[in-house]
Design a protein around this nucleic acid. Structure first.
Lengths: 167, 167
DNA sequence: TCATAGATGTTATAACACTACATGTTTCGA
DNA sequence: TCGAAACATGTAGTGTTATAACATCTATGA
């Protein structure tokens, strides 16, 4: 899924390098996720599902307290700890990622491999990319220094096309 | 400078790929930094210098409040805002970097180019690397998506050799 | 159906970062 | 060398993000 549909740029000649995420709807993703969780024997509870739903529907990464505000239950906003617990679950199972550079969370769509995100420093927009070059380079650097690679989102910051225009 | 001297690993055949930071002492770095600041016409005040000193002497990235505790002045620990202001200065001039994934700060030694850090998820140890491959790959991915590259530290997480042994 | 593991509710607090405004200090030109 | 302006620091308070501790509820399977 593309988190910022209106701002996606695919430069000619470069599309082949980057495997675009499938442009499935939120509904299909949720259905797939439910199936995945059943297969794994873990529970996609209503709370977890709702947090994932909000993340999938958001144009940008959301803060935990943004999520709490968005998720009103019985007239009260969701307690922060509840949001964090749901996020822990989603992250643990590769369904979401924490973007440390912005203290924000985003739904993941690739599902496998080491994800990378392009993040705009100005507007906070984030685009998930699945780029073998990046994954391979990172892996090589880690092992060259004796590090064990771990599946963690790579955050690459820059200025998005839109914010360059606004200037 | 190497922040974790005892844990540096240089695998045979890989050293050429990565330009190691010069193993200068803290004193020399500080002298160089003073000269650099004079040349730029900016002021490396005692507070800023002391914050940099502590960062240079630390084995790991330090949190802002760790720095505040370490920097006692007139019997009282330094106010957090004072630390943050010093850090702002150091970061603005490329003398330090913020590691968002750990809410911590680290002295920089490369001075130029886009720095990258290998960070251990377990112990928090961070190693600065200057690797043209990584910088080039990141730059290419950004421009391919229409993003403007900005000089920001790249954080690559994994598990350091030592923590693999402990296990 | 009952024990158990997992999930959630509730309250409080820890940890990190910054705003606002007052005061001090350096620098440089008149 | 005086004074204005720019820069740096002091002080108090607050905003923001994340988690601890413990009670209660619920799904699940023997």
């Amino acid at each position: 899924m593309v988190h910022t549909p209106s701002l996606q740029h695919h430069l000619p000649g470069e599309t082949a390098r980057f495997q675009a995420s499938p442009a499935s709807g939120t509904g299909k993703i949720l259905a797939d996720t439910e199936a995945l969780c059943r297969a794994k024997g873990v529970r996609l509870t209503p709370i977890r599902r709702r947090v994932l739903e909000v993340l999938l529907g958001a144009a940008k990464p959301l803060g935990a307290y943004d999520l709490a505000d968005a998720l009103v239950s019985q007239g009260r906003r969701m307690a922060p700890i509840t949001v964090y617990r749901a996020l822990d679950f989603l992250i643990e199972h590769g369904l979401a990622h924490r973007l440390a550079s912005r203290n924000a969370y985003i739904a993941s769509t690739s599902g496998h491999g080491v994800p990378a995100f392009l993040i705009c420093e100005d507007c906070g927009e984030a685009t998930e990319i699945t780029c073998t070059d990046v994954a391979e380079t990172v892996r090589r650097v880690l092992t060259a220094q004796g590090y064990q690679p771990l599946a963690r989102a790579l955050e690459i910051t820059g200025q998005c096309p839109h914010c360059q225009d606004v200037h």
